[in-house]
Design a protein around this nucleic acid. Sequence first.
DNA 1: TGATAATATTAACAGTGTTCATTAAATTTG
DNA 2: CAAATTTAATGAACACTGTTAATATTATCA
Lengths: 199, 199
Amino acid sequence: MERKEIQEQRMKGYFIEATKDILKGEGLKNISVRNIAERAGYSFATLYNYFKDVKELVFYCVKDFQTECETHVKEQTEKIPSGSKKLQAITKAYLDYFIQYPGIFELFFIEKLSDIGGNQEASSLIISFLDRLTEEEWNYCIKNKLTTEKDAARIKATLLNTTTGLLLLYIHRRHPKDYAEYVKLSGNQIDHILNEVGT
Amino acid sequence: MERKEIQEQRMKGYFIEATKDILKGEGLKNISVRNIAERAGYSFATLYNYFKDVKELVFYCVKDFQTECETHVKEQTEKIPSGSKKLQAITKAYLDYFIQYPGIFELFFIEKLSDIGGNQEASSLIISFLDRLTEEEWNYCIKNKLTTEKDAARIKATLLNTTTGLLLLYIHRRHPKDYAEYVKLSGNQIDHILNEVGT
DNA sequence: TGATAATATTAACAGTGTTCATTAAATTTG
DNA sequence: CAAATTTAATGAACACTGTTAATATTATCA
């Protein structure tokens, strides 16, 4: 039963890639079972032989996008020395990724994946994501007395709220009104939040 | 042509009230043209004689809900003396309103009203709403040297991002996991942001 | 090759927003 | 008041959506 497994994974992969393409390109509003299936080269009904519904399919994309985003963040920040500056850079790279792919932000924070059982996992994955990206850095900062465990916890929570708010307002409400102003605002906010951490 | 105008406004009102009822009760996911029309006591097609599409109808609800929210905030905070404590109370009452009616939060911050012409107005109305609720208080604080104009501007922006992020994460991602923890977290965050304003 | 198992597909259902031709009601005119 | 005309309400239809079930096709194995 080895070949069967390989084939099944391959088929899943076709649908997942198609879904990811649409999310990155046209965004969440263009996601539909028929649209995905057409791009994958199969009938829409075939999709249901491999995923119990479209939400399960979309759940796999969350994992893939997190991996991709993590790579992007690492590339952007690997040369920066540890400390508050690196935390700032990681957070900004995280924001960049979602600005580049607004559909992925919508998938992560707006799409309702909540109701069904396996999707509690998706929510957990999403809300802990920024913490996971910054975990190593926070450990460094605490170890080197640049901040305390208590402050770190509060600042982590602030960062999650602030980044989520910034992205939602810019992507869905065009606030601030252009990208230049968004960069300025988000930069100021992130810097201000992390400036109480030592360097 | 006076009677005609009155009748038209009355008809619009029926649909608007029906839409508001659904948004407050079942939320945005249960909004549909047929659902609204049934509750209003008319055919779904009749709706299109009074609104060019469902987005225009929903736009009227934004105005009404802002008025209602403003009343709620005033009631909750009128007895609190001016200063940072009052700014905190206003912000928390603003949050309370959306926690009570998650469908209205979705309408304000998640529903895409963006594309069409008249809906730039909706976005502007929404992103300036918290500023309008707190405007009087900020003027008091600046006048009495409890803060500076520059700090006020930055804190206003922080408040908008933070409240929006808090609500999105709690309503859509159940983070924190229960209401008690949400109250604690949001309270801490708001207090911390506004504590640099004098009393 | 023929039977069987696995997979892909078409048809269908119930839902969505929207448009248009038609019906019903109200108003104006003779 | 009755007839003609304007106005408003509606049902049918279209193009979508997700999902299911029965059918058609393909692959596997005796």
